[in-house]
């Protein structure tokens, strides 16, 4: 599987990663190499195999519906890049 420059640009955009234009080609060739390697998976016959999403063959444990958390806003916001009036600030979102 070979990735073109446009593919890398598209994935980088999807993952919100700025890639400097000079680096895109380098990433394209590296990622293509990794994907070529990954293509070895095609050698396996998996037609009758159930996918394994998780190593544990267990089911989800459920929590009681209880409020156990208390307000820690000041602590949490002490590490935030920008806050005002208890809100996290980001550049204006246009809908």
């Amino acid at each position: 599987m070979s990735l073109e420059v446009e593919d890398v640009t598209k994935i980088a955009r999807l993952a919100r990663l700025e890639i400097k234009s000079g680096d895109v080609e380098h990433y394209a060739s590296e990622l293509s190499g990794i994907l070529d390697f990954v293509d070895r998976l095609n050698a396996a016959d998996t037609s009758a195999v159930t996918p394994m999403a998780h190593p544990l063959e267990q089911v989800q444990r459920l929590r009681e519906d209880e409020v156990t958390e208390t307000n820690q806003r000041e602590l949490f916001q002490s590490i935030a890049p920008e806050v005002e009036d208890g809100l996290y600030l980001v550049p204006k979102v246009i809908e």
Binding site: V38, L41, N42, A44, T46, V49, T50, P51, M52, A53
Partner: peptide
């Protein structure tokens, strides 16, 4: 990719 890898994981 993803599903195939999960199947190989099972193998």
């Amino acid at each position: 990719y993803y599903l195939k890898a999960q199947q190989v994981r099972k193998l």
